Simulated scan of single mutants.
Amino acid sequence: MPETDTKIALNSLGFAKPPAETRVLVAMSGGVDSSVVAAMLAEEGYDVVGVTLQLYDHGAALAKKGACCAGIDIHDARRVAEEMNFPHYVLDYENIFKDAVIDEFAESYLAGATPVPCIRCNERVKFKDLLETARDLDADCMATGHYIQRMVGEHGPELHSAADANRDQSYFLFSTTPEQLSFLRFPLGHLPSKDETRKLAAKYGLPVADKPDSQDICFVPDGNYASVIEKLRPGAAEPGQIVHADGRVLGTHDGVIHYTIGQRRGLGIGGLSEPLYVVKLDVDAKQVIVGPKEMLSTRIVPVREINWLGDEALTSRPEWHVSVKVRSTRPPREAVIRPISATEAEVELLNPEEGVSPGQACVFYETGGSRILGGGWIWRGN
Rank of each mutant, 00 (worst) to 15 (best):
V283W: 04
S297D: 09
K280D: 12
I300C: 10
D284F: 10
L272V: 09
W308P: 04
G310A: 05
E274R: 14
E274K: 15
L296I: 07
V290N: 04
I300P: 02
D282V: 06
T298S: 11
I289W: 02
V278Y: 03
S297Y: 09
Q287L: 11
G271Q: 02
A285N: 12
T298R: 11
K293H: 14
G291Y: 09
V303I: 00
G310V: 07
E294P: 06
P302A: 06
Y277I: 04
S297P: 02
N307H: 14
P275S: 14
V279W: 09
V278Q: 03
V290L: 03
W308L: 05
L272N: 09
E305N: 15
V283E: 07
G271N: 01
N307A: 14
V278E: 04
A285D: 13
S273W: 13
E305F: 13
M295L: 15
S297I: 10
S273Q: 10
W308D: 03
K286H: 15
P302F: 07
I300T: 13
W308R: 05
K286T: 13
G310F: 00
I289V: 15
Y277Q: 00
N307I: 15
E274P: 03
V303M: 00
D282R: 08
V283K: 08
E274N: 13
P302I: 01
Y277P: 01
G291I: 08
W308A: 05
D284K: 13
G310E: 07
I306N: 06
V283Q: 07
G310H: 09
I300K: 13
P292W: 08
V301T: 00
G291S: 06
V283M: 02
V279N: 04
M295I: 10
Q287I: 08
V288P: 01
V288C: 00
R299Q: 15
E274W: 13
E305H: 14
M295E: 11
I300A: 12
R299G: 15
V278A: 01
Y277D: 01
G291C: 04
V303K: 01
V278C: 00
R304Q: 12
V279G: 07
T298E: 09
D284H: 11
D284G: 11
G291E: 01
V288F: 07
R304T: 13
K280C: 08
R304Y: 13
K286W: 12
P275E: 15
N307D: 12
S297V: 09
V288G: 05
I306R: 01
K293C: 11
V303E: 04
V283S: 05
V301N: 04
A285E: 15
D284Q: 13
N307W: 12
L276S: 07
L281S: 04
E305A: 14
V278F: 02
Q287C: 08
T298V: 15
I306L: 03
K293G: 09
